[in-house]
Deep mutational scan, measured.
Amino acid sequence: QGEKVEGLQAQALYPWRAKKDNHLNFNKNDVITVLEQQDMWWFGEVQGQKGWFPKSYVKLISG
């Protein structure tokens, strides 16, 4: 089970394309609201879409 977080935002360092239905698509420089953190994967929201993404593709910009 991941840790729920509030008020964290991350900026995409690279584009990410979903490999599964529960993954989040985003483009480089998109700002993602992080909702949950697990070891290597984070759950977040961007442009009304929610899903999992690899944390190595983003950098935290707040929180």
Rank of each mutant, 00 (worst) to 15 (best):
Q1V: 15
Q1G: 11
Q1D: 02
Q1R: 05
Q1M: 07
Q1W: 04
Q1F: 05
G2I: 07
G2K: 15
G2A: 13
G2L: 04
G2C: 05
G2W: 09
G2P: 04
E3G: 08
E3F: 08
E3W: 04
E3M: 05
E3V: 05
K4G: 02
K4V: 08
K4T: 14
K4F: 07
K4E: 10
K4Y: 13
K4S: 13
V5M: 11
V5I: 09
V5S: 10
V5N: 03
V5P: 11
V5Y: 12
V5K: 07
V5A: 13
V5E: 09
E6L: 10
E6F: 08
E6A: 09
E6P: 15
G7R: 07
G7V: 15
G7F: 15
G7L: 02
L8M: 15
L8A: 14
L8F: 13
L8V: 15
L8H: 04
L8W: 09
Q9K: 13
Q9F: 08
Q9S: 11
Q9Y: 12
Q9M: 15
A10G: 07
A10Q: 02
A10E: 01
A10V: 15
A10W: 08
Q11C: 03
Q11F: 13
Q11T: 10
Q11L: 06
Q11E: 05
Q11K: 09
Q11H: 09
A12T: 01
A12P: 00
A12Q: 00
A12G: 04
L13V: 15
L13S: 04
L13A: 06
Y14P: 02
Y14A: 11
Y14M: 14
Y14C: 03
Y14I: 12
Y14R: 12
P15T: 12
P15V: 08
P15H: 12
P15D: 09
P15I: 09
P15F: 07
P15E: 15
W16P: 02
W16L: 12
W16E: 00
W16Q: 04
W16S: 12
W16C: 09
W16H: 12
R17Q: 12
R17C: 05
R17V: 15
R17A: 08
R17W: 06
A18H: 12
A18W: 04
A18V: 07
A18N: 11
A18K: 12
A18Y: 04
K19M: 12
K19D: 14
K19A: 13
K19E: 13
K19G: 11
K19W: 10
K19F: 14
K19H: 10
K20Y: 09
K20V: 10
K20H: 09
K20N: 15
K20E: 12
K20R: 11
K20M: 12
K20S: 13
K20W: 09
D21P: 13
D21M: 03
D21F: 09
D21C: 08
D21S: 11
D21T: 13
N22M: 04
N22F: 10
N22S: 14
N22Q: 14
N22W: 08
N22G: 13
H23A: 06
H23D: 12
H23T: 07
H23W: 12
H23P: 02
L24T: 02
L24G: 01
L24D: 00
N25C: 12
N25M: 11
N25H: 14
N25G: 11
N25A: 12
N25D: 12
N25E: 11
N25K: 15
F26R: 00
F26V: 04
F26Q: 00
F26I: 11
F26W: 00
F26M: 14
F26S: 01
F26A: 01
N27G: 08
N27T: 05
N27E: 15
K28H: 06
K28S: 06
K28W: 09
K28Q: 07
K28D: 09
K28L: 03
K28N: 02
N29I: 01
N29C: 08
N29D: 11
N29G: 13
N29Q: 12
N29Y: 05
N29K: 05
N29H: 15
D30N: 04
D30M: 06
D30Y: 03
D30G: 01
D30V: 04
D30K: 01
D30I: 02
D30R: 01
D30W: 04
V31S: 07
V31Y: 12
V31I: 14
V31Q: 10
V31W: 09
V31P: 05
V31C: 11
I32Q: 00
I32R: 01
I32S: 00
I32V: 12
I32W: 00
I32P: 04
T33I: 07
T33Y: 13
V34P: 02
V34W: 03
V34T: 01
V34C: 03
V34S: 03
L35S: 10
L35T: 05
L35G: 13
L35R: 08
L35V: 04
L35C: 15
L35Q: 12
E36R: 09
E36Q: 04
E36P: 01
Q37V: 02
Q37W: 08
Q37N: 06
Q37I: 05
Q37M: 15
Q38D: 15
Q38T: 05
Q38G: 14
Q38R: 14
Q38L: 12
Q38E: 14
Q38F: 03
D39K: 06
D39S: 09
D39W: 02
D39N: 07
M40Q: 14
M40W: 03
M40K: 15
M40V: 08
M40N: 15
M40S: 14
W41Q: 05
W41K: 03
W41M: 11
W42P: 02
W42A: 06
W42Y: 14
W42I: 02
W42T: 03
W42Q: 01
W42M: 08
W42S: 02
W42R: 01
F43R: 05
F43G: 02
F43Q: 07
F43K: 07
F43W: 12
F43A: 02
F43L: 13
F43D: 00
F43H: 15
G44K: 01
G44A: 00
G44E: 00
G44L: 00
G44V: 00
E45F: 12
E45R: 13
E45Q: 15
E45D: 07
E45N: 04
E45C: 10
E45A: 06
V46R: 10
V46F: 10
V46K: 12
V46Y: 05
V46S: 13
V46I: 10
Q47R: 09
Q47I: 14
Q47S: 08
Q47N: 11
Q47K: 14
Q47Y: 10
Q47L: 06
Q47D: 03
G48T: 03
G48N: 06
G48K: 12
G48S: 09
Q49M: 12
Q49N: 04
Q49K: 03
Q49Y: 05
Q49R: 13
Q49I: 07
Q49L: 09
Q49S: 07
Q49V: 12
K50E: 12
K50R: 15
K50N: 14
K50G: 08
K50W: 06
K50M: 08
K50S: 09
K50F: 07
K50T: 10
G51E: 01
W52A: 01
W52T: 00
W52Q: 01
F53E: 01
F53Q: 00
F53H: 01
F53A: 00
P54G: 00
P54C: 01
P54H: 03
P54K: 04
K55T: 03
K55Q: 13
K55G: 08
K55W: 02
S56V: 10
S56M: 06
S56Q: 10
Y57P: 00
Y57A: 15
Y57S: 05
Y57L: 14
Y57K: 15
V58G: 00
V58P: 04
V58A: 08
V58R: 00
V58W: 00
K59I: 07
K59L: 04
K59D: 02
K59C: 08
K59S: 10
K59Q: 10
K59E: 09
L60Q: 14
L60P: 09
L60R: 10
L60N: 06
L60W: 07
L60F: 03
I61D: 08
I61F: 15
I61C: 11
I61W: 06
I61N: 11
I61K: 11
S62W: 11
S62Q: 15
S62D: 12
S62I: 08
S62P: 07
S62V: 06
S62R: 10
S62G: 09
G63P: 13
G63N: 11
